[in-house]
Amino acid sequence: MYTQALDTHGKEPVVAAAGESAAHAARFQSRVDADEKIEPKDWMPDAYRQTLIRQISQHAHSEIVGMLPEGNWITRAPSLRRKAVLIAKVQDEGGHGMYLYSAAETLGVTRDHLFEQLLSGAAKYSSIFNYPTLTWADVGAIGWLVDGAAIMNQIPICRCSYGPYARAMVRICKEESFHQRQGFEIMLTLAQGTAAQRLMAQEALNHWWWPSVMMFGPSDADSKHTAQSMRWKIKRFSNDELRQKFIDVTVPQAHFLGLTIPDAQLRWDEATQHYIGGPIDWSEFNAVLKGNGPCNRERLQARRTAWEAGRWVREAASAHAEKLAARTTQAA
């Protein structure tokens, strides 16, 4: 059940006694090993809970910050069909943020608390959304590349050990299947369009390729969370495995569009049957992560402004609900 309110159920949350802890932990791990799902009220190691809260909330934050770069273009979408599709897509991202916040709330945190962490800058979200959408082709490239990379990342999470997270991801993956296709369709139309449109498409690929490749996170050698997350089945594939998969499926798509991947060293390797790219410049990734990307400030500011501007509305609705309840009691 999606509610933190159930965790206590009239008594204190289950805190394992010193002696019990090892037994609980062993039973927990054996359940995970047996591919059983863990549900909100089940005993779980605190570190598992904290890891999930961090990962699910980061994921949720990414969805709602991710509404901004594309949302920018709703008013400027170049046809009414594109406008409707873009509204539906950005709306989906809001929905996905909601499903994920709901899943996180089952672990005993409130959405307001998670929101505060985002707005204060304490919580992370996917760095990719700190890049600007300067042309319409950027909207296409986000759908094609960023959503493509996201799907690659998300499909394995549908089998994650934590039930509410896995269920949210199943729903999200199902809904997202149109996102990447609409992005590719935009790119295809541009690629088959005028010279100016083709140039726009190529430049968008140039902008988004490396950030998309970096979306999978640091190399396995440098990733501190991977091993434990794999044991807990929160994560199913390593960063590098997923990244390779993404490159392998995306390069032929770029060829189909007649666009050039901005990696001079990229080559097909007959022996491994993989595309091998040049080295990734992690200094850029780290700079954006530290807050020095092109749009870090704007994105957070936009979320803060919306939250602050909406405060009186949220308060009004709460006040009205209280009055409504009081009137109902009086009438009874």
Binding site: I64, I74, A88, G94
Partner: peptide, 29 residues
Amino acid sequence: LGEWVGHAPTLEEDLGLANLALDLIGQAR
């Protein structure tokens, strides 16, 4: 209404306003 998407007072209201916008764009088409 499309200007609101991403900037509403709550996430739920964001989805609600987007639904209104979608219906209206559909009618316009």
